[in-house]
Simulated scan of single mutants.
Amino acid sequence: MELNITASIVLFNSNADEIEHVISCFTSKTLHLKLYLIDNSKNDDLKYLGNVENVEYIFLGKNIGYGAAHNVAISLSGKGSPYHLVLNPDISFKPEIIEQAFRYMENNSKVGMLSPKILYPDGRPQHMCRMLPTPFDLIARRFMPGFIKPFFRKSLNNYTLEKLDYKKIHNIPNLPGSFMFLRNKALKEVGGFDENFFMYLEDIDLTRRIHTKYDTIYYPDIEITHALEQGSYKSGKLLKYHIQSALYYFNKWGWFNDEARSKINKSLEKKLKND
Rank of each mutant, 00 (worst) to 15 (best):
N54M: 00
N54E: 13
N54F: 05
N54D: 15
E56G: 08
Y57L: 08
Y57T: 01
Y57R: 08
I58N: 03
L60C: 08
L60G: 03
G61P: 12
G61M: 07
N63M: 01
N63K: 11
N63A: 02
I64A: 04
I64W: 05
G65E: 05
G65F: 04
Y66R: 12
G67L: 04
G67S: 10
A68T: 05
A68C: 01
A68I: 03
A69H: 02
A69G: 06
A69D: 03
H70C: 04
N71T: 11
N71V: 10
N71L: 05
N71A: 09
A73D: 00
I74T: 07
I74L: 14
G78K: 15
G78E: 12
G78V: 10
K79L: 15
S81K: 01
P82T: 03
P82F: 08
Y83M: 11
H84Q: 10
H84G: 09
L85E: 02
L85H: 04
V86H: 04
V86R: 11
L87T: 02
L87I: 08
N88S: 15
N88P: 04
P89Y: 05
D90M: 01
D90S: 13
I91C: 02
S92N: 14
F93N: 03
K94C: 12
P95I: 11
E96F: 15
E96P: 12
E96M: 11
E96D: 15
I97Q: 09
I97C: 02
I98Y: 00
I98A: 06
E99L: 11
E99G: 10
A101P: 02
A101R: 02
F102H: 12
R103T: 14
R103Y: 11
R103Q: 15
